[in-house]
Design a protein around this nucleic acid. Structure first.
Lengths: 154, 154
DNA sequence: GGCAATTAGATTGCGTACGATTTAATTGCT
DNA sequence: AGCAATTAAATCGTACGCAATCTAATTGCC
């Protein structure tokens, strides 16, 4: 085999590694969250949606639209509409057509939705603790992921 | 609001950021690969499977089983069986029941499957080039993702 | 040899992701 | 005011992921 072919092999091998690592790490973290999320009766994307809605309680707009949530999570209505209907079925969220602009649907937390937040902290602490994760390493990874993400979005 | 509540807010905010960054970065990279993958007529998981199968041509076993592929990609037969059937439909892969052990299904590349590999290099180079990605940054991210992944699997 | 336990893959069901299209409401332009 | 363009959600279709179950083949143990 000539050198060019060997280089090509190596390039594809590395491509496999990085693409795959990102994809695998994302799924591995989701898997690690599963025991906690099972207790909360949420899927991982539903959990992310709830985190955003909880956060929005403090900082306006406290009744974000589907579009606003979609911008935060980088998800479109094709994903969010059924997901939000499920959160509504669970009694955590209300979906309300705006009177101002009937194209928009506003999202608000029910009392149950707000209450669920209290259960997260203890479960999450136990999760991170059992994995023995170094907080500084997480922060560094976060910075680098942000950089990568910016390349592909900003 | 008391200090404990503020700390709790902050913890959930960070949780959202890291979980979400990993999940969003993974999807963003998949999205970035889409134009290239459209030309190859492959989805991202199909591409990863092909990368592994191409790699396996050089290093035995050159006819891996579904199980062996699944271990590399961390995917089970519930995901792989339909995915491999689609690669077979595309004429890239053959699935053959083992004669030795009829529970196993061996995977082998067709001539077309091997040929597709030649098209990847140029497309991938253009992709990385247009994103202006620093190779050293990628390598560093790769190391850190490996570390994280090990925590959740090793 | 015979039978329980294990193993590999296939199947089913649910919930994303996401492209493409549709519907309905609102804006903008003249 | 009237109508084209835009916008927000919803809907539809395809392809994952993954848990759970099923089937068939093989292994292990007596």
């Amino acid at each position: 085999m000539n050198q060019a072919a060997i280089d090509e092999d190596e390039a594809l091998r590395l491509d496999r590694q990085l693409c795959f690592k990102l994809y695998a790490a994302s799924r591995a973290v989701i898997r690690a969250y599963k025991p906690m999320l099972d207790r909360l009766q949420l899927t991982y994307p539903q959990y992310l949606a709830m985190l955003v809605l909880w956060e929005w309680q403090q900082t306006p707009p406290s009744q974000p639209t589907v579009k606003a949530l979609g911008e935060r999570l980088m998800l479109d209505s094709g994903t969010l509409t059924p997901l939000l209907k499920r959160l509504e079925q669970l009694g955590l969220v209300l979906r309300q057509r705006s009177r101002d602009d009937e194209r928009e649907v506003h999202l608000l937390l029910t009392a149950e939705g707000r209450a669920l937040r209290e259960q997260v902290g203890p479960l999450r602490d136990r999760l991170l603790c059992t994995q023995g994760i170094d907080q500084e390493e997480l922060a560094e990874l976060h910075r680098r992921l942000s950089g990568l993400l910016d390349r592909f979005t900003g």
